[in-house]
Amino acid sequence: MQIKLWLNGKMVTEDVAADMLLIDFLRAHGCFSVKRGCETANCGLCTVFVEDKPVLSCSMLVARVDGKKITTLEGLQEEAEDFGAFIADQGAEQCGFCNPGLIMNAIAMFRENPNPTDEEIIQYLAGNLCRCSGYEGQLRGIKAFLSFKKEKGGVC
């Protein structure tokens, strides 16, 4: 079947198998920030934006995104680098494997709720699995980033 979609701002038209997963399509197109983790939609490593909403690409057929806008971390470099530095400053990136999914979900949270409470942050990022840390560094990094944005007068 033929699909057309916008991938990080570029139109892509391709013939794909009806059972092809979005994660496999994205990785075949060089989007290596989209990682394969649990393959059961439980770890958040494969998070991408479909029409600006976070979805797990390991559990979505590429046929379902025909005609839609897909954004991976590669398409959000400036925004991701801005926030990622705050995570690194807190030592929360230990192995770094979970960072792309965490950053994608954090960016979605910043867009939907620019002033989240600690509980809201934890709830929003609950689907991101990190085996290296107790999530305290990520929480500190998110809070530091939000404080920085407030002081700067910017909106996340």
Rank of each mutant, 00 (worst) to 15 (best):
M1T: 12
M1G: 14
M1N: 13
I3T: 09
K4T: 15
L5D: 05
N8L: 01
T13V: 12
E14F: 01
D15C: 06
D15R: 12
V16N: 01
A18C: 03
M20G: 08
M20C: 13
L21G: 08
D24V: 05
R27W: 03
A28K: 13
A28Q: 12
H29K: 11
G30L: 03
C31E: 15
C31P: 03
F32E: 14
V34C: 06
K35G: 11
K35P: 04
R36I: 14
R36H: 11
G37C: 06
E39T: 12
E39C: 12
N42Y: 13
N42V: 15
C43T: 01
G44V: 04
G44T: 07
L45M: 12
C46F: 06
T47K: 03
T47L: 03
T47I: 01
V48G: 06
V48M: 03
V50W: 03
D52F: 08
K53H: 09
K53S: 10
P54W: 01
S57F: 04
S57H: 04
M60Q: 12
V62I: 12
R64D: 13
R64G: 07
G67P: 00
K68F: 10
K68L: 10
K68N: 07
I70G: 01
T72E: 07
T72C: 11
L73E: 06
E74P: 05
E74F: 02
G75L: 04
G75E: 02
L76C: 11
L76H: 08
Q77N: 09
E78W: 05
E79Q: 14
A80C: 09
E81M: 09
F83N: 01
A85K: 14
F86L: 05
Q90R: 15
Q90P: 05
G91Y: 04
G91T: 10
A92W: 07
A92Y: 06
A92H: 04
C95E: 03
C95Y: 03
G96E: 05
F97Q: 02
P100N: 01
G101Y: 06
I103E: 03
A106N: 00
I107V: 10
M109W: 05
M109H: 09
F110W: 10
E112G: 09
E112K: 10
N113W: 05
N113P: 10
P114M: 04
P116R: 00
P116H: 00
D118L: 10
E119Y: 07
E120I: 03
I121D: 05
I121T: 02
Q123N: 15
Y124R: 13
G127C: 05
C130M: 02
C130S: 03
R131Y: 10
C132N: 04
S133L: 12
S133G: 13
Y135V: 02
E136S: 09
Q138T: 14
Q138G: 01
R140D: 14
R140N: 15
G141T: 07
I142T: 10
K143W: 08
K143E: 10
A144Y: 00
F145V: 06
F145Y: 14
L146N: 13
L146W: 09
S147G: 11
F148W: 13
F148T: 11
K149Y: 02
K149V: 09
E151P: 02
K152V: 11
K152D: 08
G153N: 00
G154M: 12
G154H: 06
C156A: 15
C156L: 14
C156E: 12
